[in-house]
C-alpha cells in the first residue's frame, strides 16, 4: 500500500488516491489504488484502465430473426461502436435462426410492413447499407462486442454447437448471463 505517487514501487502504477474523512473533515484513511505493470508497458496498461473505467455498456436481447430488425440492430451497434461502448448481445429464439450458418445470408424475411418487402430490400441496396452480418462484424472490429447464443434457442433451431452458427457468435450461454450482464448495463434493449 502506497500513500502517494512518490512511494509507488517501480513495478506498479499509481492510479489515484481517495481519502476517507471523518465527521471533522480530518483525513483518517488514505486509500490508494495501484496496479502491477504487465510486460513493463505502463502506457498500454493505463490506457486499458482508462477505457475500462469510461466505457459504457449496452446489452441487447436480440429476439428477432428478420432482416428489418436485424438491420436496425446493426445500425445501433454502429452507434455503440463509434462511442467505443462495451456491447453484450444475447441471441434469443428467432434470432438464433438468423444466426445459423445456412440461414444468415439467404434469410430475407421481414417482420413489419411485409407488403413492401421488395421496396424495403431494394432501398437497402440503393443506400449501400451493409448486410446486417457486416454491420455486426464492423462493430465487433471497432469495439468490444460479445455475441452469445442462447442454448435453448440454438436447440429450437437444431443448433447444438457453436460451429452451427456464423463466426460472429462467441459462445453458447444461458439466460443467467444475460440477467447479470443487463443488471449493470447503461443501455438495455430488446429487439
Amino acid at each position: 500500500m502506497y500513500k502517494n505517487e512518490n512511494e509507488c514501487n517501480t513495478n506498479h502504477i499509481f492510479i489515484y488516491q481517495v481519502s476517507h474523512q471523518d465527521n471533522w473533515n480530518k483525513v483518517i484513511t488514505p486509500i490508494v489504488l495501484y496496479c502491477e505493470l504487465v510486460n513493463n508497458n505502463s502506457e498500454h496498461l493505463t490506457m486499458n484502465l482508462k477505457n475500462k473505467k469510461m466505457a459504457k455498456k449496452l446489452t441487447l436481447a436480440l429476439f428477432s430473426g428478420s432482416v428489418d430488425k436485424l438491420t436496425a440492430a446493426g445500425v445501433i451497434l454502429g452507434g455503440a461502436a463509434a462511442e467505443e461502448m462495451e456491447v453484450e448481445i444475447y441471441v434469443l429464439l428467432q434470432a438464433a435462426f438468423a444466426f445459423k450458418k445456412e440461414n444468415a445470408m439467404v434469410n430475407d424475411r421481414v417482420s413489419e410492413i411485409t407488403d413492401k418487402k421488395d421496396d424495403f430490400l431494394a432501398s437497402l441496396k440503393r443506400l449501400n447499407a451493409p448486410h446486417w452480418t457486416e454491420a455486426f462484424r464492423t462493430a465487433k472490429e471497432m469495439t468490444n462486442v460479445k455475441i452469445h447464443i442462447c442454448g435453448f434457442a440454438g436447440k429450437v433451431w437444431h443448433g447444438e454447437k457453436l460451429d452451427d452458427f456464423i463466426d460472429l457468435a462467441d459462445d453458447i450461454c444461458g439466460i443467467g448471463e444475460y440477467m447479470s450482464s443487463a443488471e449493470d448495463a447503461d443501455i438495455n434493449l430488446f429487439i
Binding site: 445500425v75 454502429g78 452507434g79 461502436a81 463509434a82 443506400l127 449501400n128 447499407a129 451493409p130 464492423t138 471497432m142
Partner: peptide, 14 residues
C-alpha cells in the same frame, strides 16, 4: 458519401 448512417460516423471513428 457512398455510405448511409452510421457509415460516415464509423468512417470518422476509424
Amino acid at each position: 458519401r457512398g455510405t448511409s448512417c452510421p457509415g460516415p460516423l464509423l468512417a470518422a471513428k476509424k
